[in-house]
Design a protein around this nucleic acid. Structure first.
Lengths: 344, 344
DNA sequence: ATAGAACACTTAAACGTTTAGATAAACGAG
DNA sequence: CTCGTTTATCTAAACGTTTAAGTGTTCTAT
């Protein structure tokens, strides 16, 4: 612990501890003269107020808990960055808990029990650490409604879905709509899509966006062009082959994540289909590698930083007991690269 | 703050606060009878000890600070995961600070002043939060000796270098030696390398490993085969072209990170050099995308989790005031994929 | 010159725990 | 049955701050 306390400072500066506290916090006027004297002693002794004591007295810890389902999943660090960014501004600190869910229970959405166990343990620990609120970063976009009990402390969810509390997501539907519109503007009319697993909410939303684009742009609706993947490269590979083997090939494929887009590119490579000459490919997520593939793939960038930032903003409001007004949903941004061209 | 305190529990259980504390911490014998009574009340009221008060009295916060130069840089999350893993075991919590260095000052190693400023600010905040120690995750492997002042609190560095304190790195030299040996075993003798910037320590270590392999395996030493890159894809691209334009082409290229390996593959693609038929390519870092490229690239996996774990272990020892014994350096692991073959 | 307000500073209680030391009760040996 | 010891519990101080209330001191306006 800090060796030197406020008493020592007070003694050396010939004032009471109260005065030291006042100059430290600026909570009352202190004559310039004495203020400077106190400051000087503080400097000299390199005094730092003991935060434990402060928290105890103030009943405020200036600390929030961040629970990440798994920090090593691609979207999490950026979200944390956003939270941290906002927290900095409000002089809040971040107590981080990593659930390691990917490593512990994998993507099995049904292990609700062990899931609930890990999550609530983490919450419980954080609460006893006196965090003023929690932001929960879900990586697999499941619906968490009712799973987590914070005994009244404010919580906001980032990236995942819940009905009972505040949760910040980006605008999935509009993103896939925008992607489709982009392909249409490039001249494509036969567009294949490879979706994620349909038990995931964003997957359904992205599909909605696709469907909206199909109707609005009056594309021929062909069920053969719709493939159900599972987010993994292998499924992109397999389904792209199916699409490319159609008697009437699509001229473009929209994969609902970049990983499946990789699979698409592999399939194209194998079948000697050149991208983007013979086939346009579009991904989703703007994973770092999408810029490293050959050709560099056009994709939708996720507003992860913004999600984190907004989550923290909302949490701060909840902590202050204020109403949190609905903000416009963060939107994705189209990243134009080399994998899309006009059809020949 | 917690609404219900130890006094309330004591009152309801008809004991003194001391007794409650004893059953809570097991620091003294309490008759089974009363212990159970106290426990029951604790349960009923969902009582959680106020950590601020505990910390104040115990002079222990069970919290360490983690400073990350930038959480969004590829190696950081995995290191945090390792730290978190170990911290969990020791019942320690993590107060996270993200310097956002990449965004604020970029890779400019020379901005020592503003660098020092950010880092020491973070340290200072953490110290006043009463962390018991700090692990500092550097992303650009510069030498940080003397830059950071923790006023006596233990600190350990992960991934970066320092002479004055404990720092945990992986074994760079042996990794590049192993990579080279692998290529040699595959039958290559003319091996080009593209190094990182030579002002970076790992870059020099990796070069040492290369050189050691060259001499030990009695490869012809040809300075033309050694190219100095800057870690970026573009430099890999440019330098691979130079290598491929040599009158006596190398049959394999070892790029000292996966990003530059991407550049190599682009160059090869453009020059119609097929990988691995006409040229073997090896990367370094096992970035996620290395598995997504076509062909999937063989590379060296970094023991990031282990680095984080060891860092936390060492820190725990320092905190306890114990000697930290030198452990064997974590080593990289060769990930064999498709980009390397025997020369034709 | 003086009352009253404004200002600068101090005193001491409080925040919710832990823990040494005190006390009381129960036990065991003779 | 007594004395010493062990065991169970309690009392109260302490941890390092903040802050309401109190005490001087210095202005300001008359």
């Amino acid at each position: 612990m800090s060796e030197v306390g406020i008493k020592e400072i007070a003694a050396r500066a010939n004032v009471s501890t109260a005065t030291v506290s006042y100059v430290l916090n600026g909570t009352r006027n202190v004559k310039l003269n004495t203020r400077e004297r106190v400051m000087r002693v503080i400097e000299e002794m390199n005094y730092k107020p003991n935060n434990a004591a402060q928290s105890l007295k103030r009943k405020r810890t200036n600390t929030i808990g961040v629970i990440a389902e798994d920090v090593t999943v691609f979207n999490v660090p950026e979200i944390i960055d956003g939270i941290n960014d906002c927290a900095d501004k409000m002089d809040m600190h971040i107590l981080l808990t990593n659930l390691r869910l990917d490593k512990r229970i994998g993507r099995n959405f049904d292990q609700t029990d062990s899931y609930r166990h890990y999550a609530n343990n983490a919450v419980s620990e954080l609460l006893s650490k006196q965090v003023e609120g929690i932001v929960y970063i879900g990586v697999h976009p499941r619906d968490l409604t009712g799973l987590i009990d914070t005994s009244g402390k404010p919580i906001v969810y980032a990236y995942c879905y819940t009905q009972s509390d505040i949760s910040i997501q980006y605008h999935d539907e509009q993103a896939s709509y925008e992607a489709m519109t982009y392909l249409v503007k490039k001249g494509h009319t036969r567009i294949g899509i490879i979706s994620g697993t349909m038990d995931s909410i964003p997957s359904r939303l992205r599909f909605n966006g696709y469907y909206k684009a199909v109707t609005e742009h009056e594309l021929p609706f062909d069920p053969q062009l719709i493939k159900m993947g599972n987010w993994e490269a292998e499924s992109g590979y397999r389904l792209a082959k199916e699409l490319l083997e159609l008697e009437q090939r699509p001229t473009a494929i929209l994969a609902m994540n970049d990983v499946m887009a990789v699979g698409v590119m592999r399939a194209a490579d194998e079948m000697n289909v050149q991208i983007p000459r013979d086939l346009s490919v579009m991904g989703f997520d703007n994973r770092e590698f999408s810029d490293y593939l050959i050709p560099r793939v056009t994709t939708m960038d996720l507003p992860l930083h913004e999600i984190g930032f907004q989550a923290m903003e909302s949490l701060a409001l909840l902590i202050k007991g204020e109403q949190v007004e609905r903000k416009p949903m963060p939107v994705c941004k189209l990243i134009e690269r080399e994998s899309v061209d006009a059809p020949r």
